[in-house]
Design a protein around this nucleic acid. Structure first.
Lengths: 218, 218
DNA sequence: ACCTGAACACCGTTCAAGT
DNA sequence: ACCTGAACACCGTTCAAGT
């Protein structure tokens, strides 16, 4: 099992004076700039401090390690999207499930897509683009397999099997990632599996025409 | 935009003799061991080479940078899961969509869950667990918001709103991650949004009882 | 063809000294 | 209370020399 040293990622010290707050702001802004400019590989403590116009020592007073910089950025991004999603839920409260489904999906994707530059840079943390290319490569392979499967269905025919396979694959692999998170509880994983099966079945049914109808038309 | 230096991640040199192949195998095995033992933070080229019983120079002959080690591991993992998924699709070929949905979801999750130790370690690349904790924290908040929304639906009542909210949230956030990948094409994103809305609507309908029936029973 | 390991440039982190 | 920057330990990567 991957054991990890327990590390403090939160700020070591809260800024108490105005100039200290300005320092923290400058560091965070510098982190974004350096990240967007050169990716994670070029994000060094020296570079961020230099861009922020402070010494490394000062930076370490507020961000006890390099990771804390990224952590703070991620926290800010997630606070923002969570607020947007909560607001969306508030808006469609009491609507029909059809409206709820449409609004929720739309607003959720919108929220996560805003500030996409930063989000992408954060997601890319670690293996950078290379990992993504690999994921895409196999994503396409899996999608092709699923598409072939859909086209073979005994009792249904799909008008756009490519789109359905695409959505199904994205949902599954995205969810699988969540399910394999280290702290995903066994219960959650099993429940999720059951719910996903219901979801996939309902989706396919909604997207398919019965094969009989097709045969009858010819 | 995050610009990245183009780097060769594939092996620099193919092993031609038997002892060279043994060297490559030893390095890959050592990488897994070091990764599972101490996480990404302790995965240094020196440590892997030492564990593999070769010099760093030898390692750099086959893996031109540190990332290439992880890349090779990830590739092996994905080849394995892709093969499992293809086999699953082959098995349920020609079945009904109900069977297809159930089999596909089940086998997909199984494939991605096998070798979970390595998968987790690979997923953890970069921000390690801290990121995950943050994701979970806001995941729970979003889930609670969605659950409240579902319970407020005008035309439906859910027997297990928590489970439905959990599945919906996992699907959405997992998919959003895929949609915000740098190379996700605009077309794909828009199509995915539409498909997800159909999926969510179909799922909610499958999971809900009409409110009238509930009112009538009382 | 394959391997070695000292050497180099650079990075994360600390801490005594300053205002 | 806040900031500085030289100093330290260590890491990724290279390359001349070996078998």
């Amino acid at each position: 099992m991957a054991r990890l040293a327990t590390v403090a990622l939160e700020a070591r010290k809260q800024p108490r004076q105005r100039r200290a707050q300005a320092t923290v702001d400058a560091i965070m802004e510098a982190t974004i700039q350096v990240l967007l400019e050169g990716g994670l590989q070029r994000l060094t403590t020296t570079r961020v401090a230099e861009r922020a116009g402070v010494s490394v020592g000062t930076m370490y007073q507020y961000f006890p390690q390099k990771q804390a910089l990224l952590f703070a950025l991620l926290r800010r991004y997630m606070e923002k999207t969570a607020a947007a999603i909560a607001a969306s839920c508030e808006r469609s409260r009491g609507a029909t499930i059809a409206v709820i489904a449409e609004t929720l999906v739309g607003d959720f994707l919108d929220a996560k897509t805003t500030d996409m530059n930063v989000a992408q840079a954060l997601h890319a943390v670690g293996m950078e683009l290379a990992t993504g290319n690999l994921l895409d490569e196999f994503g396409r392979a899996n999608q092709a397999a699923i598409r072939g499967l859909l086209e073979s269905a005994e009792d249904a025919v799909f008008d756009d099997p490519g789109a359905v396979a695409f959505a199904l694959r994205a949902t599954l692999s995205g969810t699988a990632r969540a399910a394999t998170r280290p702290d995903a509880k066994r219960y959650d994983t099993r429940a999720l599996r059951h719910e996903l099966q219901i979801m996939a079945a309902a989706y396919l049914k909604a997207r398919a025409r019965p094969r009989d109808a097709e045969a009858a038309r010819r």
